[in-house]
Design a protein around this nucleic acid. Structure first.
Length: 277
DNA sequence: CTCCTGACCTGAGTGC
DNA sequence: TGCACTCAGGTCAGGA
């Protein structure tokens, strides 16, 4: 499911309830996710206090009072559900963490993931910078470090096409297949163009469209196509704003040309060959 | 190094 | 109804 706006949506929902909640019961139904959940996961996390969630690329990190980080990645189909009702196990629920808020209210955080491409880990706060998955991540596209100078430096002498560059998590952490298409449509750049053929004006345009598109999607709760729901079960409405993704052979909103679909690195890619040069 | 492919896994949709 | 096949929002390991 999830790219940056969907992960951010989950993070925002979690931050409303976590806020110094004590971890009570933890139940792992399946530990063979993308990586196996560590043996000591339960004993290490139990009775710790979850302080505050934040996002790094498509990862959710939750800091704890015992100086640890609870790391969550949603993979392709992962979802975090927040429930204050009695828990009934649903298909593909792999893990449940019961927490008790400062005001003694009990919530269940439920990790559900049909394809099990996601995972959950717990490690020491001081190891964050060295974590094998986090250490190679590039800049956050919403931050000030994502600017023309940075992008120019990263793509110089790169023959790879610009869409692959946008999806390269070691350059920009958080963009995925939907938003890469949407961003390039808005920037009027053909996804097949090699990165080093772009001029400063193009780069500026990519930066602006990226920030605009992501912010707009976050404000609408992300994009619900198949799996993504906000943790309270609500849909994400950015799907209504999609201009090209999933719209093969439909008319471009700008020029009425038919939208094309091609595969780039085995990922479906949508664009308007008339608007995007 | 860079770049591309295959692999991981389940479910939904399509066509016969 | 059933079967075979394709595709799906991610990303790592391995080979060219």
């Amino acid at each position: 499911m999830p790219e940056l706006p969907e992960v951010e949506t989950v993070c925002l929902a979690l931050s409303k309830i976590i806020n110094y909640s004590k971890v009570r019961k933890i139940k792992v139904f399946r530990k063979d996710l993308r990586w196996e959940i560590r043996k000591k996961f339960i004993t290490d996390l139990q009775e710790d206090v979850l302080i505050k969630p934040y996002r790094r690329g498509k990862y959710i990190l939750i800091s704890t009072l015992k100086q640890k980080i609870l790391l969550i990645h949603l993979g392709m189909s992962g979802q975090v559900k927040i429930s204050s009702n009695k828990y009934n196990r649903a298909k593909h629920d792999h893990l449940i963490i019961n927490i008790e808020s400062k005001y003694n209210k009990i919530y269940s955080l439920i990790y559900n993931d049909p394809r099990r491409f996601g995972f959950i880990d717990l490690f020491k706060l001081k190891e964050v910078e060295h974590h094998f998955l986090l250490k190679k991540l590039g800049v956050d596209p919403l931050g000030n470090e994502f600017n023309v100078d940075y992008l120019k430096k990263k793509i110089s002498n790169r023959s790879k096409c610009i869409k692959s560059i946008l999806m390269d998590q070691t350059i920009i952490a958080g963009l995925g297949n939907i938003y890469a298409s949407e961003i390039l449509y808005k920037a009027k750049i053909n996804p097949l163009r090699s990165a080093d053929s772009l001029n400063l004006k193009h780069l500026k345009s990519i930066i602006t469209s990226t920030k605009f598109t992501l912010k707009q999607s976050i404000s609408m709760g992300g994009t619900s196509i198949k799996d993504h729901l906000q943790p309270d079960g609500k849909l994400g409405y950015f799907v209504q704003k999609l201009q090209v993704y999933g719209k093969k052979n439909q008319n471009c909103n700008n020029c009425n040309n038919l939208i094309s679909m091609i595969f780039i690195n085995n990922r479906s890619t949508y664009f308007c060959s008339n608007c995007q040069k």
